[in-house]
Design a protein around this nucleic acid. Structure first.
Lengths: 195, 195
DNA sequence: CCTACCGATCGGTAGG
DNA sequence: CCTACCGATCGGTAGG
């Protein structure tokens, strides 16, 4: 993680806003709160950003871009469905781990986007989810995965686990993001049961 | 689900508020929004409730009570860890399914509770999570579950899956809450892998 | 359950 | 980046 000093003023504003939005939620965070965090007056924020929502937009869409890049790379390889799922999970976790704060905002605050941004965001998300669902379906049809589990349930369980990670993962813990991804993939593919 | 007509006026206020909080989030929901939903003036709400936050408090703590009741019953039985986990999951899902709206608010909006309510709520939650963690640890030590998976990761994955359910589960779908709980437990215990 | 209203705070602009 | 400010909206109260 870089020091704030290495970031442009606009990037500092966005990063501070991300922390604020994560802590208090977007709607409960005021521009005066944000200004205070940065040691300036609220009106001064508007020389760096156009509006409060513009900050949310860049946080949400920048994360979305990273997730899509990661998944596209996994899809481009000649992997089995099991491998695609495993590396897809690891990639998703690593993208989140690069910015846990932005990840938490991405997950919890995107609903405060106004139209047409909200619609665009949800389309990106459903596309991403469907590509993971396709991997699970491929695995089921090729006999790698059970065919008995409901595919929607499987993919939503996967997503729930991935998306809540920023809420409890401690980046200073012994388990690093790559290993976290490995273990999460293992748990979802192989389950808790011994054997 | 009962018709609104069978509820006291106070219960109607709380139920409408739950829908509003779920849709827009607590902070972005105004008392004027809520009054409009009920066809009255904002000031009139205060003859039924003391404050906006009182509504959130009753939603959060009523759900917490239901969850604890369900888990206590599972713990009281002479089950193996695998059975306790399975019935704990099914119970949790069934409690949520009884009121998906309140469940979504419980999960997403509790952070807007003020002190000391927030502290009390978080203590209840950590206690509940730890009791599930104890079940997983018991299963690992008795050889029912793998000992290789990080217990914190396992229990947080479990909770993520449970708590996101209100976001995607369609109560009018073919799969009913009991079966949803069964499948979710199966996926977490046995994994996606065939065999 | 209503009218009338309060002080506080909101996102944002004008002009420098 | 600041001072000065705007109209809108907020949760809530008084009094009926």
């Amino acid at each position: 993680m870089e020091a704030l000093g290495n970031l442009s003023r606009k990037e500092q504003v966005i990063r501070s806003a991300a922390e604020l939005f994560r802590e208090k939620g977007y709607a409960a965070s005021s521009m005066r709160d944000l200004a205070q965090k940065l040691g300036i007056e609220a009106a001064s924020l508007y020389s760096h950003i156009k509006s409060k929502e513009e900050i949310l937009q860049s946080l949400c869409f920048d994360m979305a871009t990273e997730f899509r890049k990661s998944l596209a790379e996994v899809e481009s390889k000649n992997y089995t469905a099991t491998e695609k799922l495993r590396f897809g999970i690891i990639g998703h976790i690593q993208v989140m781990a690069k910015d846990l704060t932005a990840s938490a905002v991405f997950m919890n605050e995107h609903r405060h986007l106004s139209q047409p941004f909200l619609r665009d965001f949800l389309l990106l998300r459903i596309n991403y989810i469907n590509r993971f669902k396709a991997i699970i379906e491929e695995g089921a049809s090729k006999g790698e995965f059970k065919d008995t589990i409901d595919k929607k349930l499987a993919v939503m369980t996967l997503f729930s686990s991935l998306n809540w990670m920023p809420m409890w993962y401690d980046p200073s813990s012994k388990i690093d993001p790559a290993e976290l991804g490995q273990q999460l993939a293992d748990m979802l593919v192989n389950g808790l049961k011994k054997g």
